[in-house]
Amino acid sequence: MKYSSLVIEHFNQPRNIGVLDASQSNVVVARRGQPDEGNVLHLYIEFDEQGFAQSSRIKVYGDPYVIAAASLATELIQNKTIDELQAVSYDYFVEQLDIPKTKWHSALLVEDAIKEACHAFKSLEVSYE
């Protein structure tokens, strides 16, 4: 498999690796994928009081595309509103990282994780109300 330079860059130096304290009320975590399916992503997002994504962290296992897409996602997430995050699609990662069709599931996993995190944040908001 031949990878684009952006994939190799993110694969060799993935951004924002780590975890956030999910017991905090403004932190959500989305866990997607299964090891025996080849990809696992844990995505942590911290929101500020205005509902902007303040920071994010990832733990990721999988092929180079899922590592690169998850890393790229942490840069994309920064300062986005919940509505903006919900609009993030796998297309963005496919285009940016030049992901072949047979590997689109890697980009979908990242989209799913972002959507799950948004859903979790909305649930938090409801519980506050």
């Binding site: 498999m1 990878y3 990809n39 296992y61 999988g62 092929d63 180079p64």
Partner: peptide
Amino acid sequence: EGIEGDSLILA
């Protein structure tokens, strides 16, 4: 164990 095959090759 713990590293996906394609990532092994790229690494």
